[in-house]
Design a binder for these strands. Structure first.
Lengths: 237, 237, 237, 237
DNA sequence: GATGAATGAGATTTCATTCAT
DNA sequence: CATGAATGAAATCTCATTCAT
């Protein structure tokens, strides 16, 4: 019952299925566009319905594509999920790079905000990402990988800011911060259980308090305090 | 003039069946036991697979029950979920009561820990609860209700401790704290993405910091600072 | 946070599927053939067993189709019934047109026969039609519609023949005549309770008597009495 | 697929089923009441849903009986149907007797009305009866029997009135009249496709015309023409 | 290469009937 | 004996995936 991905039914006539074939990389621009539309649609459908309930048929029809074409590019649902994860990975890396670039300049509070907001800033995409990450059982390798890489990136950022922080501590912190990022997404985009704008401010505040507390004593000397949009971080001083 | 004498007529969507019928309350002890087993199995399966992926057949077989008996007591999957939610609700209320009873005596740090640990203390159950709460698509009313009631209970606890806290603020805080509770569950019981014990300590710390910061100035005078098992809460002092 | 990668997720009432989707219009010739076979099989099975007792599985197997293909074109049993009804509607309109075309030329007796025979002349189809019309519980809109349109058509024919007939009277007559048509079908094709050929003659006679009686004094002047195959209509004159 | 009535599943543990056992005849008055309630409920449910869609469970619950008790008295659905048919048979015989008693006294028109109304006068019951009679395929013996006996009774009535009528003709007529009786029930009680009161008058008229026409020349001499509520039967003179 | 069609395993749900307390 | 519970075959419907045109 806890079967692997390629254990399922096969449909149609005999022959050997192409289960393990990776996503087709489109050669022409028209193909690239098609793939982009497919991924966008997949993201939206998965966001709305969750990975399980998302059907290949709906993904195809929402992207004005026919089911046959969808399978040309993504030979199965898992590959599609992987492709999405990869896109998320790239988006995340871009954002992490951006954060790292500013990690030493900004105030601790700002850094906290940058981190906690980063996932939610991918907006559309983030919800689907969370849906994917939370798909229970059978985490495809890609999904575990994403999680670990994310933690590593956050660790990297933290160490950039506070080089003397023990790596183990940084990792534990990263886990917490990653969860805050997911929580921010949930709060920001959940239509069925809308949260007050105040609660996102509270989340940000908590994240600031936590980061400030943990980094105290480890921070680099030459940090110039930037203005933080939340106002001066109450609760410490 | 329709119909037929040897009607197999046993199909799913056929007539207008007991859709919408509430869960059957068992009359005999054997029935009560069966229901208990069914709920336990449901909880476990949903925890493992997620709500969508959990199948009624697996729930039945795991509780040594035939599918027909499962449907006797729970006429559909949604009602089963509702029954689970109700059990969780009762567990939660018990825990909230216990926390409220101690809310004025314990230190702020302890209160923070009580809150953040409470969900995870229901262990077995909690994972399924989270799976249920996070099931995408139509949140049955019960699910939304649970969330709101939980928030109200946390608000109640906060106001018990800090009566002068503005209610709106308390509600925003409750949302954040509730998410911390869910995060704690995820960290504690997720086998596929195990987190270091350190990370739960970090989560607890963050939660303490946050609560202490928010309650500062609102707290009742006569709180005796109990020793907190985490050690002195670094980062405040 | 629900879901799972290897979602069998193929259940019936699971997500929010193409319930309510209309019948799929086949694009290719092979599809059109398949749909034709499906409708024919459906008609036959419903005729034999009645609507409730007819199973989608039997309809599929009788048309050498797999159940999945049946559901591709007809997303549920109701839609299949609707499609049949539409075909019947078309057949009926064709026949009504033909009758109307001759309504002024033929004798009253002939007109009566034309009407009462018309349904039974569709043969194969008619039995299934009657089964559908008589299916208890929720008459899909289509079914009520059929009935009303049929009555309207008969009214039209009557008024063509006897323009001075009060419309309300015509409508009441139409109800009776429609029932005679259904009775004729039942008599003609019911294998389980075969009726003597004599009884259909009697039904025809009754229908003639009735029509002649009601139209007397309202008929158009220039009707040429055609010979009626039943012989001279005994009982009037 | 066209299995007999006792070909179905068995449920529970092994042992030999009591399929062919007839309905239990209750010995005590409480039992007789119980049976009466069960039959009444069965009649109502079958009327509403049709025989196929009627479930034993609903029949039990509507008669404030438990499913186990229902099965004590009626060991299966077929037996229940048979019992209903028997009640209908008795009702019919009572009515036929009453009609026969007056058959020679009343006018032809009145006789026609007596016949065509008789079924509908059992109102509550009649709808269920029709539902039973129209259950397609697998007519239990009882059902065929009912039909034939009804025809024989009508033949009897006709011959009482017109002894010189050839028996074959009488039988053909009886088929037609029986159908008129069923039509009257349909018109009178069908809520989903209500017919104007006018149409039942038309049906009665048609039935009168027919009977008068067929009996002409065969009738007994000493019939006193009773006033017919429908007015003078136009169309004959 | 695009796409409509085919496939079939499997999920949910129903219900007649039997049994055990 | 009354009745709650158990059973399991069967019906409806879904959807990932493959093929043929």
């Amino acid at each position: 019952m806890s079967s692997n991905i390629s254990e399922k039914k096969t449909g149609a006539a005999g022959s050997q299925p192409n289960h393990k074939r990776p996503a087709l990389v489109p050669q022409r621009s028209v193909g690239r566009e098609r793939v982009a539309m497919l991924l966008a649609a997949a993201s939206k459908v998965i966001e709305e319905r969750g990975f399980d309930a998302a059907t290949m048929a709906e993904i195809a029809s929402r992207s004005d594509t026919k089911i046959g074409s969808l399978y040309r590019f993504f030979p199965n649902k898992e590959v599609l999920a992987d492709a999405l994860m990869q896109r998320f990975t790239e988006l995340r890396d871009t954002q992490c790079d951006a954060i790292d670039a500013r990690a030493r300049e900004v105030s601790t509070d700002e850094l906290a905000d940058l981190l906690v907001n980063s996932l939610a800033e991918i907006h559309d995409e983030a919800k689907a990402l969370v849906a994917l990450l939370d798909a229970r059982s059978e985490w495809s390798g890609k999904r575990i990988e994403y999680r670990e890489k994310s933690i590593r990136r956050i660790v990297g950022t933290l160490l950039l800011r506070a080089p003397t922080l023990p790596e183990e501590t940084a990792k534990d912190m990263a886990v917490v911060i990653l969860n805050n990022m997911k929580t921010m997404v949930a709060m920001t985009f959940d239509k069925s259980a809308p949260t007050t704008p105040g609660s996102t401010a509270e989340l940000r505040l908590m994240n600031r308090l936590y980061l400030a507390s943990k980094l105290a004593g480890h921070e680099l000397p030459a940090v110039q305090a930037g203005a933080s949009p939340l106002g001066d971080a109450k609760g410490r001083s």
